[in-house]
Measured scan of single mutants.
Amino acid sequence: FHVTIHVGDITFHIHGVSEEEVKKLEELVRRGADWREIKKTIEEIEK
């Protein structure tokens, strides 16, 4: 999957994300995680 996440003024683009990881990111966004937490999760996914 290709994912784009907008957190305030920050936009993250992630490529090659599995469905499971998409759900993890959706959950973070849904519970209102700040951009640092989302960035950390994205960095883990990209490894």
Rank of each mutant, 00 (worst) to 15 (best):
F1T: 11
F1I: 12
F1K: 12
F1E: 10
F1Y: 09
F1D: 07
F1M: 12
F1H: 11
F1P: 08
H2W: 15
H2Q: 09
H2N: 14
H2T: 15
H2P: 12
H2G: 07
H2I: 15
H2Y: 11
H2D: 15
H2L: 13
V3T: 06
V3A: 04
V3M: 09
V3C: 06
V3H: 05
V3Q: 03
V3L: 07
T4M: 04
T4D: 09
T4S: 08
T4H: 07
T4K: 03
T4E: 09
T4F: 03
T4Q: 04
T4A: 04
T4I: 10
I5M: 04
I5Y: 01
I5F: 02
I5K: 00
I5H: 00
I5R: 00
I5V: 08
I5C: 02
I5G: 02
H6N: 08
H6D: 04
H6E: 09
H6K: 14
H6V: 14
H6S: 12
H6C: 08
V7C: 07
V7F: 12
V7D: 05
V7E: 02
V7R: 03
V7W: 12
V7S: 07
V7T: 05
V7M: 10
V7G: 02
V7A: 06
V7N: 05
V7I: 13
V7P: 00
G8R: 02
G8V: 02
G8M: 04
G8H: 03
G8S: 03
G8W: 01
G8I: 02
G8E: 03
D9F: 09
D9N: 13
D9G: 14
D9I: 04
D9L: 08
D9H: 08
D9E: 11
D9P: 11
D9T: 09
I10C: 10
I10N: 11
I10D: 11
I10W: 15
I10F: 15
I10Y: 14
I10H: 15
I10L: 13
I10A: 09
I10T: 09
T11W: 09
T11L: 05
T11A: 05
T11I: 11
T11K: 05
T11Y: 10
T11E: 07
T11G: 02
F12T: 02
F12N: 00
F12L: 09
F12V: 12
F12G: 00
F12S: 01
F12P: 00
F12W: 10
F12Q: 01
F12M: 07
F12Y: 14
H13S: 03
H13L: 03
H13Y: 06
H13F: 05
H13E: 12
H13K: 02
H13R: 02
H13D: 06
H13G: 01
I14T: 03
I14Q: 02
I14C: 02
I14G: 01
I14W: 05
I14D: 00
I14R: 01
I14N: 00
I14F: 07
I14H: 01
I14S: 02
I14A: 05
H15L: 06
H15V: 10
H15E: 07
H15T: 11
H15A: 06
H15C: 06
H15N: 05
H15Y: 15
H15R: 06
H15P: 01
G16M: 14
G16H: 13
G16I: 14
G16L: 14
G16S: 11
G16K: 02
G16W: 11
G16Q: 04
G16Y: 14
G16F: 12
G16D: 12
G16V: 15
V17H: 03
V17K: 03
V17D: 04
V17M: 10
V17Q: 04
V17W: 08
V17C: 07
V17R: 02
S18D: 07
S18R: 08
S18T: 15
S18P: 06
S18G: 09
S18M: 08
S18Y: 05
S18W: 04
S18N: 11
E19I: 11
E19D: 08
E19W: 15
E19S: 09
E19C: 04
E19R: 05
E19F: 14
E19V: 12
E19H: 13
E19P: 08
E20W: 08
E20A: 13
E20I: 14
E20Q: 11
E20N: 10
E20F: 08
E20K: 08
E20Y: 09
E21V: 14
E21L: 09
E21W: 14
E21P: 01
E21F: 13
E21S: 11
E21T: 14
V22Q: 06
V22C: 08
V22W: 15
V22E: 02
V22S: 05
V22D: 01
V22H: 05
K23W: 07
K23Y: 13
K23T: 11
K23I: 14
K23D: 08
K23E: 09
K23P: 01
K23G: 10
K24T: 12
K24E: 08
K24Q: 14
K24S: 08
K24Y: 09
K24C: 05
K24I: 15
K24D: 05
K24N: 08
K24F: 10
L25C: 01
L25Q: 00
L25I: 11
L25H: 00
L25F: 07
L25E: 00
L25G: 00
L25K: 00
L25R: 00
E26Y: 11
E26I: 13
E26T: 14
E26G: 08
E26Q: 10
E26N: 10
E26F: 10
E26H: 13
E26M: 15
E26R: 08
E27V: 05
E27A: 10
E27C: 03
E27S: 11
E27G: 09
E27Y: 04
L28C: 02
L28D: 02
L28E: 03
L28F: 03
L28N: 01
L28P: 00
L28V: 08
L28I: 08
L28R: 02
L28Y: 02
L28T: 04
L28M: 12
V29E: 04
V29M: 13
V29G: 03
V29F: 09
V29C: 07
V29P: 00
V29W: 07
V29Q: 07
V29L: 13
R30M: 12
R30F: 07
R30T: 12
R30Q: 13
R30H: 13
R30C: 05
R30G: 06
R30D: 10
R30S: 10
R30A: 14
R30N: 14
R30Y: 05
R31L: 12
R31I: 11
R31S: 12
R31F: 07
R31H: 11
R31G: 11
R31M: 10
R31P: 02
R31Y: 05
G32A: 06
G32K: 07
G32L: 08
G32C: 08
G32R: 05
G32W: 03
G32H: 08
A33V: 08
A33N: 03
A33Q: 03
A33Y: 00
A33I: 05
A33R: 02
A33K: 03
A33G: 06
A33M: 03
A33C: 07
A33T: 06
A33W: 00
D34I: 01
D34K: 04
D34V: 00
D34H: 07
D34T: 06
D34L: 01
D34E: 05
W35T: 09
W35I: 15
W35C: 09
W35N: 05
W35R: 06
W35G: 06
W35F: 11
W35E: 13
W35Y: 12
W35P: 10
W35M: 15
W35D: 07
R36H: 15
R36A: 13
R36M: 15
R36Y: 13
R36P: 15
R36Q: 15
R36D: 15
E37T: 08
E37M: 01
E37S: 03
E37V: 05
E37A: 02
E37Y: 01
E37R: 00
E37H: 01
E37D: 12
E37G: 01
I38K: 00
I38G: 00
I38Y: 01
I38R: 00
I38M: 03
I38V: 09
I38A: 02
I38N: 00
I38Q: 00
K39F: 12
K39I: 12
K39C: 08
K39G: 09
K39Y: 13
K39T: 12
K39P: 01
K40C: 07
K40D: 12
K40G: 09
K40H: 13
K40V: 12
K40Y: 06
K40M: 11
K40F: 07
K40P: 03
K40E: 15
K40L: 11
T41M: 14
T41Q: 08
T41S: 09
T41A: 10
T41F: 15
T41G: 07
T41K: 08
T41Y: 15
T41R: 11
T41P: 00
I42K: 01
I42N: 00
I42C: 03
I42H: 01
I42G: 01
I42F: 05
I42D: 00
I42E: 00
I42A: 03
I42W: 04
I42T: 02
E43V: 10
E43Y: 06
E43S: 08
E43W: 05
E43T: 09
E43K: 10
E43C: 09
E43I: 13
E43F: 07
E43D: 13
E44G: 13
E44Y: 07
E44I: 08
E44Q: 12
E44R: 10
E44D: 13
E44K: 10
E44C: 03
E44W: 07
I45T: 04
I45C: 05
I45P: 01
I45L: 10
I45N: 03
I45R: 05
I45S: 04
I45K: 03
I45M: 10
I45D: 01
I45A: 05
I45F: 12
I45Y: 09
E46M: 12
E46V: 14
E46P: 06
E46Y: 11
E46I: 15
E46H: 11
E46W: 11
E46R: 10
K47C: 09
K47H: 14
K47G: 11
K47N: 10
K47L: 12
K47W: 05
K47E: 12
K47Q: 12
K47M: 13
K47P: 06
